[in-house]
Design a protein around this nucleic acid. Structure first.
Lengths: 188, 188
DNA sequence: GCTCAAAACTAATGATATTAGTTTTTAAAC
DNA sequence: GTTTAAAAACTAATATCATTAGTTTTGAGC
């Protein structure tokens, strides 16, 4: 048959566009196939079913986040680096709501590649926090905290949970500021 | 036919149990019907299809969260109240992962009842924050921040994203402490 | 030009949601 | 107590989707 020249990359590209434009739930093998002018079973030549598509989207999202926050933090340290990382993360979630959602719904169940991608992100955050001279345990708690803040804010924002007409950037800035202030060596 | 005595309440009860036990995605009309010893179409007598079930789960979750955090904050103020609310919220998410997920996937699109339930929760948090004597705008930013923290931590925890064997309660406590410290009147 | 693996296809199956229309039960109205 | 009518269950049918099996065709390498 016409041999349309499909490969995994092209399928995932289409899936990512669809997810961002119409939501992750709109990504079905049927909708993907139609968009690629192919019949659904053909997609199995390139990816492992719908689950495979979801996994690939999650992986792409995690790697893109990693690349962005790494780039954002280049040449910066401490507060500046944290702020830059948080901003980059949040920007990604806003620009790619579908991909971002995919990164959250991931199974991770014994999937080393996916876990590794996630760990890369954690490692970037952790390395910045290392600059504060925290102890090992303190640094881990701080990493968790920062993750929770960024993820919490980004996902609520993506869900449209912040209805009020009040500057979101300012809300995020204040939250980060409070967190950063708490990183300074405690003496009370 | 045998008239099994079903009503909306019973259907939602079953859906909630199923969601918590096997995940929200396991809640299908087919699985629900089987559990209730009924054929799938019968469910339409009580709820508006699968979307209706999901909406009902979200509503139940929001109301339960509201009830729990309200109860938790009774007789407390400021830091103690915030900590109690945060703990109650997080406990709910852990005890009812399926319901909690349902509360996040809600559409909210022009659904006044759902929006009202969400606003109740926000109002509880806001009223505690009012005790800090913040200005109007400051209080709104703070409400957003606290929501992000609690939701972020709870959902990452629910997703099993915190792999390390390090005390989660302690991580959460520290995060809250930093946030609370940032609420004190600024003078620098 | 042959060969063969890969990429597309058709056909079929099974799960699901949903709608339409039917039967049966129950409870209220008389 | 009988009638009636709404509600709750059903059966049957349709449509969408994912997935598997098996088939055809293409195109690259020999």
């Amino acid at each position: 048959m016409p041999r349309i020249g499909l490969d995994a990359r092209a399928v995932i590209d289409a899936a990512a566009e669809l997810a961002d434009a119409e939501g992750l739930d709109a990504v079905t093998l049927a909708s993907l196939a139609k968009r690629l002018r192919v019949k659904p079973p053909s997609l199995y030549n390139h990816l492992d079913g719908l689950e495979g598509v979801r996994r690939a989207l999650a992986l792409r999202a995690l790697r893109e986040i990693d690349a962005r926050i790494t780039r954002a933090a280049v040449g910066l340290a401490k507060d500046e680096a944290l702020i830059a990382i948080a901003a980059a993360f949040r920007t990604f979630a806003r620009e790619h709501p579908g991909l971002y959602t995919a990164s959250l719904r991931a199974p991770d169940r014994g999937d080393d590649e996916l876990a590794a991608a996630g760990n890369e992100i954690v490692a970037v955050v952790a390395s910045v926090l290392a600059g504060y001279g925290l102890g090992n345990e303190d640094a881990l708690h701080a990493t968790r905290g920062l993750r929770a803040i960024i993820h919490g804010f980004a996902s609520l924002e993506a869900a449209g949970a912040f209805g009020l007409p009040l500057d979101l950037d300012e809300s995020f800035r204040r939250l980060l500021r409070a967190f950063i202030a708490g990183l300074q060596p405690r003496d009370g």
